Amino acid sequence: MLSACSRAPEVALAPQASAPVCASARWPGDVSGHTRVTTQPDDGSVAAWGDPALIARCGLDPLGPTTDDCVTVDGVDWVVRPLSDGSVATTYGRDPAIEVLAPGAYGAVPLLLPAFTDVANSLPATGRHCS
């Protein structure tokens, strides 16, 4: 069923969403040509673009060592995992961490990550890196 007005995507806030670096995250205005849309809740630690929504959340607990794929994009390390329809990338070596959820329609999530370099670099580094 198509609706004349789309609802704001509902986003669960991350455990450290209230951390100052997340509450005032400087999210990009657009990602790969998709404009930013309002989220529910409307919180500075989360952002979404396009329809279906590409969603980013700041405030996740940092990842520990993993065997999942780890890629470096613009000097930022990301752990990338497949989902049933799309993929998720989470900053590695940052505390708190950022998570980017990309529906399959957006293609390979690493190609979207340059839009998040500035906000990822604003997060405190833990010293861990992809190896």
Rank of each mutant, 00 (worst) to 15 (best):
L2R: 15
L2M: 14
A4E: 11
A4H: 14
A8L: 05
P9N: 07
E10P: 01
V11K: 13
V11S: 07
A12I: 04
A12Y: 01
A12M: 05
A14N: 07
A14H: 05
P15Q: 11
P15D: 11
Q16G: 02
S18C: 00
A19H: 11
P20M: 06
P20Q: 08
V21Y: 05
A23Q: 13
A23C: 02
A23S: 12
A23V: 03
A25T: 02
A25G: 02
A25M: 03
P28V: 04
G29R: 15
V31T: 08
V31P: 01
S32T: 07
S32C: 02
G33Q: 10
H34S: 12
H34W: 12
T35Q: 14
R36T: 08
R36V: 06
V37R: 15
T38Q: 14
Q40P: 00
P41C: 05
P41W: 10
P41K: 14
D42Y: 08
D43T: 07
G44A: 04
G44M: 07
S45N: 04
V46T: 12
V46D: 01
A47F: 04
A47G: 08
A47Q: 03
A48K: 01
W49I: 00
G50S: 04
G50D: 00
G50Y: 00
D51Y: 10
D51K: 13
D51F: 09
D51V: 04
A53C: 06
L54F: 00
I55T: 13
I55C: 01
A56L: 04
G59L: 06
G59A: 06
G59V: 05
D61L: 10
D61N: 14
P62Q: 13
L63V: 04
G64L: 05
P65L: 13
D68A: 15
D69T: 15
C70R: 12
T72R: 15
T72Y: 11
D74F: 02
G75K: 14
G75N: 12
V76A: 06
V76R: 09
D77E: 06
W78K: 07
V80T: 09
V80F: 01
V80E: 01
R81C: 01
P82A: 13
L83S: 14
S84D: 14
S84K: 13
D85C: 10
D85H: 14
G86P: 07
A89V: 08
T90W: 02
G93C: 07
G93P: 06
G93K: 12
R94T: 08
D95K: 13
D95H: 11
D95L: 07
P96V: 09
A97K: 13
A97R: 11
I98S: 05
I98W: 03
I98V: 15
E99N: 06
V100E: 01
V100D: 00
L101H: 09
L101P: 00
A102R: 03
A102S: 15
A102P: 06
G104D: 09
A105F: 09
Y106S: 01
Y106Q: 04
A108E: 14
L112F: 02
L113V: 06
P114T: 04
A115M: 04
A115Y: 05
A115R: 09
D118R: 15
V119E: 10
V119Y: 08
V119C: 11
A120E: 08
A120C: 08
A120W: 10
A120Q: 10
N121E: 10
S122P: 03
L123D: 03
P124Y: 03
T126G: 11
T126C: 10
R128V: 02
H129F: 04
H129A: 12
C130K: 11
C130V: 07
S131C: 00
S131N: 11
S131Q: 13
S131D: 09
